[in-house]
Design a protein around this nucleic acid. Sequence first.
DNA 1: AAAAGACTCAACCGCGAACTG
DNA 2: ACAGTTCGCGGTTGAGTCTTT
Length: 324
Amino acid sequence: MGRTPCCDKRGLKKGPWTAEEDEILVNYIKNNNGHGSWRSLPKLAGLLRCGKSCRLRWTNYLRPDIKRGPFTQEEEKLIIQLHGMLGNRWAAIASQLPGRTDNEIKNLWNTHLKKRLLCMGIDPLTHEPFSSNHYPTTKSCPPSPSTRHMAQWESARLEAEARLSRESSLFGPQPHTKANSDFFLRLWNSEVGDSFRKLSKFGEKIECHSSPISQASSSTKCGSVSALTTEVDPNTAGLETTVGSQVEEMEYCKSCKSNGEDFMAAGSDSSSSNDMEDSSDTALQLLLDFPINNDMSFLEENCSDYGAAADHAMLSESSFICPL
DNA sequence: AAAAGACTCAACCGCGAACTG
DNA sequence: ACAGTTCGCGGTTGAGTCTTT
């Protein structure tokens, strides 16, 4: 059976909304304490629009809590960070930016942020430097992004668990770490980690064109933090970033590794990890709680443990001149 | 001043998930 | 359990505006 149309399209108006239509829609929703059924709303309100169009107009434009004006730098950073984690899940991203709509964020991404990452030499799809496609040590068969990131997550998780075990046996509970307890394990046990694990099963099939979510899930901290750590003005000639075209995959793996360590360094209470809610909101909140602060300190802190100092030096020395 | 190209963003379309009977 | 209905999401479009030549 064919899909029934959302509304009878004959005689219905399309295109830009007029002020009168806006007023009718707003008044109807106000007077009825909500929209009720979008499908029946146009008829009841006296609008020659389909319900879908009404819903879109309301959610993207007329809703009273919509924030107007340009995006702040903080909002842009947050969007990049969340996109690295969630991919093109605009609604999920929008839910973390009060007053901003998914459509607005999608437009911002497509018109500004994507170009900005490209300008920085970062693939906006994967949040990895473009040079990461080069695999000098595995020329014949580079691992798929999903496989690599699965390995990174798993590696970080194992290290985290080992560290927890070591610390709990040697020192007992660390009082100063309670507040940010085991970020990584919580994230791993969340929906985000779960989706990543599921997607990783298809890693070999997905290969280079895997979904943004699968590719970005674990790379986000590497790619997006790099993106976030440099003030970028795409209009400025001679733009430099800390991410260079010569950065190789291993630097990023190690960065992820130390990043995972940093998640764990923030806490040692593993007993609660299995009790965490498996919701994306929780995962997102964890991400948002994770300090980015425009610096690379979380990488530097663990340089000694993982030999990341040299890697970080390479990262810093590599500069990228924006050709745009 | 005018044409061409680039950019922005509101709105549309189709799909899949969620809901309902 | 199933089919039909509704809703929400993400990709895409195209009209309007701005910038460049």
